[in-house]
Amino acid sequence: MTKLYTIKVKVNGTEYERSVEPRLLLSDFIRHDLGLSGTHVGCEHGLCGACTVLFDGEPMRSCLIFAVQANGHEVQTVESLGTPEHMHPLQEAFSEKHALQCGFCTPGFLMTLVPFLEKHPDPTEEEIREAIDGNLCRCTGYQNMIGAVQLAAKKMAARQEV
């Protein structure tokens, strides 16, 4: 057994203190140590984007960094967005526009898009395509995601007005 390191990470607003091997991937830490299995692993080599989480607010592939590197940082996963009963507007829009099929890639897309929508409250089709270009989806052909993101932008703007 390699030496264990104690890390403190804030995940979805909760502080966790855990002892981990230095080689433990952040994705495995989130999924198996913390039981937050909404973050998915599709390739473990940084290319599919299914494992995307927010790391200090920025999208990051959790299969590409170690849990120890998250010590003292803040992570947000898909579980932070909404619940089945009260979904985030982006989640609602994904459902309404049929932007997911198997849903395995979806948490990665959502976590890429949440900060994108904050920076681009009214994105063009081209901006959306660029934004999701680093995430792979085998089921949908991406087409419906474009409409979903535009719908989400509208929903979010409407909520802000109220």
């Binding site: 299995s37 909404g38 998915h40 089945p84 049929h98 849903g103 395995f104 959502l110």
Partner: peptide, 21 residues
């Protein structure tokens, strides 16, 4: 009709095989 399964998939609640411990 929008899908019955979507709310679970979208919120990370849907259980895939590697989620089972």
């Amino acid at each position: 009709v929008t899908r019955n399964e979507d709310p679970y998939l979208l919120t990370g609640k849907a259980e895939f095989i590697d989620d089972i411990e």
